[in-house]
């Protein structure tokens, strides 16, 4: 159970520094926060012509929230706003246990590794924080 959550992949993403920065020209900036566990991120997006050109984040929190944010950013770079919204919805549905079909979830790329969080109600908010934050941000795009 634990090994299925705290994988090497999750460890790498939670510690990766590549996407942990501020953008030079962000067009959208959104703050997300889990009051219970203290996860706190600020997501920055550079969108032009309806496409996410670049994304990055700052902040801190548990390994699950940080890895999930990092995976999301890698997935979203280069996607259209419409595609990004769909993927965020799909990820949230996966964590809620509403979509379980692996073929469909393949679209989430590495973030599919977080599927088992759906069995850990206490950590669902950690996994979905970034994706909800993105969803809110894109609502303003």
């Amino acid at each position: 159970m634990l090994e299925e959550i705290y994988t090497e992949l999750l460890a790498e993403h939670s510690q990766s520094a590549e996407n942990r920065r501020a953008l030079v020209n962000p067009t959208l900036k959104e703050h997300g926060h889990n009051p219970t566990c203290g996860d706190d991120i600020t997501l920055e997006l550079e969108i032009s012509d309806g496409v996410i050109k670049d994304a990055a984040f700052t902040g801190g929190g548990c390994a699950i929230s940080q890895a999930s944010t990092d995976m999301m950013i890698e997935l979203m770079r280069g996607k259209s706003v419409a595609e990004a919204k769909k993927l965020a919805e799909l990820f949230i549905a996966m964590i809620k246990g509403e979509v379980t079909d692996n073929a469909e979830l393949e679209q989430l790329d590495e973030a599919i590794a977080l599927k088992n969080i759906s069995n850990m109600p206490a950590r669902v908010k950690c996994a979905t924080l970034a994706w909800h934050t993105l969803d809110t941000a894109l609502g303003k795009a």
């Binding site: 159970m1 634990l2 959550i5 705290y6 219970t36 566990c37 203290g38 996860d39 801190g60 929190g61 548990c62 390994a63 699950i64 850990m120 206490a122 950590r123 950690c126």
Partner: peptide, 20 residues
């Protein structure tokens, strides 16, 4: 290690602590 991850790992070992 963030306290919330500590608490999850301890829970799996049957130890109930508080994190936050």
């Amino acid at each position: 290690v963030h306290p919330h991850d500590v608490a999850t790992i301890l829970d799996a070992e049957g130890v109930a602590i508080r994190a936050g």
